[in-house]
Design a protein around this nucleic acid. Structure first.
Lengths: 227, 227
DNA sequence: CGATATTGACATGCGTCATTGTCAAACGTA
DNA sequence: TACGTTTGACAATGACGCATGTCAATATCG
């Protein structure tokens, strides 16, 4: 063959480096994935539809992602980290009070769901049906949120006040309450004001904080036999 | 062609009437649907696999069901009505006390989930991703359970004690708590005893019963500012 | 300008699965 | 026994979608 090999450093196209162009395409695909997965659901989402939304051809899909499942995982992680950041930002400056913190967190989460209903479909519905691997991903994520709630409860209330309760179970219960509340809200078309929904969910957190059935509160109080 | 037409009434095969045979096949398909949908999930379940499990050929599938989705709907309704019956049976004889009734109901539901984990996959996971029609089905079903909880709460506590709360929202929150609790339990391999899980979930019901932030309880009690 | 890199539109191969159809064997009844 | 019914095994068809490949048009840079 030809002995002379012309090796050219291209690396720039429309003024943008190759690496950055690729990163942009990946980002566009994640946006498109959010749109398509979040509206028609994972199983009805075709690679073609995603690429059409991203204004890219299928070749570029496989440049950034192994397959449809991999894109879903990326979208999912994207949303989770976004929510986690927002949650932390909302909780850090809040007063160290269970009710107030619950309201701050729930306001952030519920607000995000109302602002972008596509989140819900991805975070709470499809994620469990994509694959075992994505399922594990979601366990870690919701476990992380439950961990947050658990830490909050454990910090707020000393050991002796929550005797007989398993903080992990309670935390997952509270997380489930929030999830189903927001889903009900969404299905009804977000009729109720955000504050109302937050309030009705936060009450569960507050009520638990005020009520520990087997507790030995600071003030002597007869433990009425059965709960 | 032949003028004589031999019309024979068969109607019996292996001693069973045609109608009953068909009903049996339908029932076997529902059982197989529970097995396959409940293990690999709806989207990975093929008609062939279902028929294999039912010991029937594909022809008989379409004799009883329009398509895979129709079978799923039938399986779903089957499970829901089963659970509803069990729940009513558990609640009717129970004392009219929120904590006790919650425990009775949760014990029934959680026990059913542990006895047959396939239920969970169908009732709480796949049902939202099958189709819009099945989705509506599920809204009605969970709405029914929430209605039950709501009625319970409204009966137990008079209007003035739940001022500021929307019973529908609270009920959906509690239902979500139960759902996520049992899912966490299942994912962990049902390590904790049933009573423990029930207790940690029932506490949410009880706590709410004992705590109405804007309530004006019968006994005068200083409303200590924050929870 | 000319060579190469990059892109976009589209085609192709491949496998899977739903759904219908074929056919012979087993069965029940006259 | 003889005939129509019921059943089970399996083939045929057609649609769909993933994943890869082709090719011309456009952009970049020496």
């Amino acid at each position: 063959m030809a002995t002379k090999i012309t090796r050219r450093k291209t690396s720039r196209f429309r003024g943008i480096a190759a690496e950055e162009r690729q990163a942009q395409r990946r980002s566009m695909l994640i946006d498109a994935g959010l749109e398509v997965f979040g509206t028609v659901g994972f199983h009805a989402a075709t690679v073609r539809a995603i690429c059409t939304h991203a204004n890219l051809t299928e070749r570029y899909f496989y440049e950034s992602f192994e397959n449809r499942e991999a894109l879903f995982a990326a979208v999912y992680e994207h949303l989770v980290s976004h929510l986690r950041d927002a949650l932390v930002a909302a909780l850090l400056p809040a007063p160290r009070d269970v009710g107030t913190m619950a309201r701050a967190g729930l306001t952030t989460l519920f607000g995000a769901m109302r602002d972008d209903p596509r989140y819900m479909r991805i975070l709470f519905v499809d994620v469990f049906t994509v694959s075992d691997e994505v399922d594990r991903l979601s366990r870690r994520a919701t476990g992380g949120f439950a961990q947050l709630v658990q830490t909050l409860v454990e910090t707020m209330y000393p050991q002796d006040r929550r005797a007989g309760l398993d903080p992990r179970l309670v935390a997952h219960g509270l997380v489930g309450a929030a999830m189903n509340t927001v889903m009900y809200w969404a299905y009804g078309g977000y009729k109720e004001p955000l504050e109302t929904v937050v309030h009705n969910c936060a009450v569960l957190f507050e009520a638990l904080g005020a009520y520990f059935p087997q507790a030995a509160p600071t003030k002597t109080k007869s433990r009425s036999g059965k709960a």
